[in-house]
């Protein structure tokens, strides 16, 4: 848990967004939309809320653990890990390029510090997080396990297998979050496959559900995380419905699925970077 001000955290967000855009632009491939939308949440976790060690240990004993189920947000995770000191920021320039440790989707195969499981094929991350959370209990480790999923990912059946399991076993040391941006590759979730009342569904599965209505507002994110932490240890798993805007921070990317999986051109990158302050020095 680091003692950073809201202003400092927002400065990190601005830099991380620049990193993400430059990474995706540099290889002309990747997923900028959800990365920009989840930036506040990731920065809040890695620079404020989580107890974690950038001298990476796979077992993570005595640390809070983080699992990303919607692995296509990889650019954001890599940027946050690099800015947290897990590896040098210059390595961000290798994103998605041949011989990189920064694979298109997160992987352990190349030994990138910070990654504990491969993800990208959707629906699997919550199950993994729950297994890790149960082992924390077996090991007498009181730290928490965080998991992030996409909202489109809620269409995967395995998510609901995991949801049922967590409540049955009272896994109350996990905080899962759904990136509730209402978008998926083929369009708005309500048109592709309507999720209907997600909150009611998760509550019906036995979870404690809270909203973070302003998922791109650092103060609101921190308040929501504090609330979520307060709900742990009480016999129920905790879910955050994290309302975000895809592409947040760049005016022409915000609020549309169009930027789910395409890279900005040179001109678009210049325009976008003009909207985001360089606070920590570009890699």
């Amino acid at each position: 848990m680091e003692n950073k001000s809201i202003e400092q955290l927002n400065d990190i967000c601005s830099q991380v967004r620049r990193d993400c855009l430059r990474m995706v632009h540099g290889v002309q491939s990747g997923h900028p939309g959800a990365a920009l939308g989840l930036t506040e949440y990731f920065v809040a976790l890695f620079f404020k809320e989580m107890t974690h060690n950038n001298q990476f240990q796979m077992d993570g004993k005595g640390e809070d653990l983080f699992f990303l189920s919607n692995g296509h947000v990889s650019a954001l995770w890599y940027a946050v890990l690099a800015r947290s000191g897990y590896f040098g920021v210059e390595e961000l320039g290798t994103f998605r390029k041949i011989n990189t440790r920064l694979q298109g989707h997160p992987a352990t195969e190349e030994g990138l510090p910070g990654i504990r499981i491969a993800s990208g094929s959707l629906g699997q991350g919550l199950s993994v997080a729950l297994g890790a959370a149960q082992v924390k209990k077996l090991n007498g480790d009181d730290k928490l396990v965080y998991a992030v999923m996409g909202d489109g990912e809620q269409q995967e059946g395995q998510v609901w297998e995991a949801a049922m399991y967590a409540a049955h076993y009272k896994i109350d040391n996990v905080i899962a979050a759904i990136d509730y941006n209402g978008q998926q590759i083929d369009g708005p979730t309500e048109k592709v496959m309507d999720l209907k009342n997600l909150k009611a569904k998760w509550e019906a599965f036995g979870w404690e559900v809270i909203d973070i209505k302003k998922g791109n507002d650092m103060e609101a994110v921190l308040a929501g995380l504090a609330q979520a932490k307060g709900l742990t240890g009480k016999g129920k798993p905790v879910l955050i419905l994290l309302y975000t805007e895809m592409g947040y921070g760049v005016d022409f990317m915000v609020g549309t699925h169009k930027w789910h999986g395409i890279a900005p051109s040179d001109a678009e990158l210049a325009n976008a970077l003009g909207q985001l302050k360089e606070t920590l020095g570009d890699y």
Binding site: S127, L130, G131, A132, Q134, Q158, E161
Partner: peptide, 16 residues
């Protein structure tokens, strides 16, 4: 729920 079982097992290796 076999899919969940495999994911859980993978997660349980983390922590030994």
């Amino acid at each position: 729920a076999e899919a969940n079982m495999i994911g859980l097992a993978a997660g349980m290796t983390i922590g030994g």
